[in-house]
Amino acid sequence: MQKQVRAWLEDGKVDVFLAYKMDCGHPLPHAFTRERIDETEDLVTGPARYSLEKFATQIAARHPEKKIGLLARDCTQRALNVLAVWNQLPAEQVEPLPVNCCPSALKPHADCTYLEAPATGEVKIQCGQDPRQSIEAVDAQEGPERFARWMYEFQKCIKCYGCRNICPVCFCKDCSLEHPDLIGTGNLPPDIPIFHLVRAVHMAGRCIDCGLCEDACPAEIPLRLLYGKVNAIVKDLFDYDTGASDALSPFSILGDKPTLTPAPLLAVSQE
């Protein structure tokens, strides 16, 4: 891995390579460059995970001429597809170096997060949504119960905007979550469930299920499950697998009648 990155930098395949480097026992994101090529000897691939693709997008916005290499887990690869579809990061500007991550025969456990996945508390199983559930299990809940369970989760929100800030595919200049006419300001919890549903709608055809948002949520709201549901609907309606390829999103060419109906939302939240 280190050798590969070194070679890429040396022969100019990439100008910068995004990976991790240990600092006092903490893996921190690091941009490796030709100028300090010896640092590649300290390159590590994890275990912590930052949004490297987001950093790549930020570099590309400033330096369209630079070639950017990065460690790419499966979800990173999906994010790169979506970022290319939405014209945020041209595919030819990035050079992903695959790392094995999602479950496989060799590696049965997903190491999405550096933390031991804690057992879900019994109270959360009683009142909230267990993040380990399948989407089908959530669908199987009675409407009012499902709504109450989601509202239990949402009312813990401390409006940190971390879910949006960390998300590789949240790149809008003016974010609807900060639009005072849409979502009231200055309150905790924020207007619920609107705050969370606005974001959920935006993730249709966009969220690549990397889990960074859930990982960054101080309130431990099972956001991945919520956006997973939204994208299951997208799959149902449009047969579109978000991030699986660079095929255009069903929402990227909205006609005069937007195809995004409120129906999917209602199915998730209120009956």
């Binding site: 026992g25 903490h26 995970r49 930052y50 550096y114 940190c160 971390g162 990982d215 101080p218």
Partner: peptide
């Protein structure tokens, strides 16, 4: 992400 106080959240 790995800080003992906030564990990757802010």
């Amino acid at each position: 992400k790995t800080h003992p106080v906030n564990q990757g959240k802010l």
